[in-house]
Amino acid sequence: MRYLVLGIIDGLITAGTLSASLMFSGGVIDIEFALALSVVVASINALIALVAEFSHQMREVREAIYRVSLREERGKWTLVHSRALYDTLKSALSSFVSSLVGALAVLIPASYMPQAALLAVAASIVVISLLLAGGSWVEFIQFAALLSLAVAFGLLVGLAFPVIK
């Protein structure tokens, strides 16, 4: 769940930031560009999740094995390691899929018109905030405000430092 939500937010912000200058300068985002950028963003996010989760999981496994046997067991592969690796791969895959969804949510509407992209971003923020808040209106407002701020900051950075013109 953590990587699903993180992935969607990451996809939204990264794709929005990278294409902000192009969107607001009246450039054309065609469907091919939208797909290509989404795959690149999703792949980078998945690789980051893979490395981060792998190091976290392996440290946890090392500590758990140490607590059981009270000695350092380096280089020995156990069922616990295999399970940790499986969880890591699952997290990376979740990150890829959710980042792809997040990036496509901005770029596909943008390939029709830039205003549609902004509407899609707003709708995504509402949906993600609702999911994260779990029924609490106070938390919904907090999440929505935080996400809006993050997206706005991303767009500003994208406009200030145009990568794709």
């Binding site: 946890e60 094995i65 046997s69 156990t78 069922l79 399970r83």
Partner: peptide, 12 residues
């Protein structure tokens, strides 16, 4: 014997 609580169960 002893096993870690995370990643493996007694069924395994």
């Amino acid at each position: 014997a002893a096993i870690p609580t995370k990643g493996v169960t007694i069924v395994d």
